[in-house]
């Protein structure tokens, strides 16, 4: 994609110790880069539910998040950097949301505003409610509250800016859009008898097979007792099929793993090409 290889930036004439090689030239560049990104963050003008009202209140004159360079709320996803998911995500609405997310150019960020967008909220048990937008698109910042007050939302926005500050151009995982191009689109869910996440198609098939055999399906058998700290501890004894479930276990998210692998491969290719070029010269 880009012709600029960031690693060239620290190929200076001066001998740089190996352990500092990724840092010297890039830190200051990263700083400038991050500063400009964090100070011109354009959110998408996009409200879902009650939280959207507080989001508008945050944009209005009393709290005024244009002080952070966010005044331009764009109606089009193609012009925005940040999607504030402000409200209850329903199954019917998650389809357009995923589409909108896919249409946003990178770098793109997602903020889950309020209990609903983070994890389902008070309406979690409802049949048409998605328990957390992070089941479909990756989320960068969660802002709890129902609704978060404008000040809480602004704290979330500042946290997001802090996240930017932590990113470094030296680490291609932080800025993948320079390294290996845009990330893969999130597959768009299908509205069948219930919402269907294409990433779970295999799992759904397995469950349907269980059902066809008259076996119990749909519910996960858990060890009869909860671990004392289930809040942090992931479920240990997962049934084999649960490995395909992407949400509860971040580590083995196959989609993410695939993306990582792809990125690794691309990096390796790049490195090889570079080495070959150097070889030719030498």
């Amino acid at each position: 994609m880009s012709t600029l290889d960031l690693r060239e930036l620290h190929d200076t004439e001066f001998p740089v110790p190996a352990d500092m090689q990724n840092n010297v030239a890039i830190t200051s560049l990263s700083k400038i880069y991050n500063w400009s990104r964090r100070s011109s963050l354009w959110p998408m003008l996009f409200g879902l539910a009650c939280c959207a009202i507080e989001m508008i209140a945050t944009a209005a004159s009393r709290y005024d998040f244009s002080r952070f360079g966010m005044e331009v709320m764009r109606g089009s996803p193609r012009q925005s950097d940040l999607m504030i998911v402000s409200g209850t995500v329903t199954k019917k609405m998650v389809v357009p949301i995923v589409r909108l997310y896919n249409q946003m150019p990178e770098p793109k960020y997602v903020m889950a505003m309020g209990a609903c967008a983070s994890g389902g909220g008070p309406f979690k048990e409802g049949y048409n409610v998605v328990s957390g937008i992070d089941q479909y698109v990756p989320v960068d910042v969660y802002v709890p509250g129902c609704p978060p007050t404008p000040q809480a939302l602004m704290y979330g926005l500042i946290s997001l800016q802090k996240k930017f500050d932590g990113e470094s151009l030296a680490n291609l995982d932080d800025v993948p859009w320079y390294g290996v191009g845009p990330s893969d689109a999130v597959p768009i869910p299908v509205l069948g008898p219930d919402i269907i996440d294409p990433r779970q198609a295999e799992l759904i098939r397995q469950q349907a097979m269980l059902a066809a055999q008259g076996l119990p399906f749909g519910r996960r058998e858990l060890p009869a007792v909860a671990v004392p700290q289930p809040a942090v501890a992931p479920v240990e004894e997962k049934p084999a099929i649960a490995a395909a479930s992407t949400e509860t276990a971040e580590e083995i998210d196959p989609e993410k793993a695939a993306r990582l692998a792809k990125r690794e491969a691309a990096l390796a290719r790049k490195r090889a090409a570079k080495a070959a070029a150097e070889g030719n010269e030498g």
Binding site: A112, S118, G119, G132, D134, D140, V141, Y142, V143, P144, G145, P148, T149, Q151, A152, Y155, G156, S159, K163, A231, V232, E250
Partner: peptide, 11 residues
């Protein structure tokens, strides 16, 4: 205390 935003919710 409303300043509770964070980067991860699972834990």
């Amino acid at each position: 205390d409303y300043e509770l935003a964070d980067f991860d919710r699972t834990g």
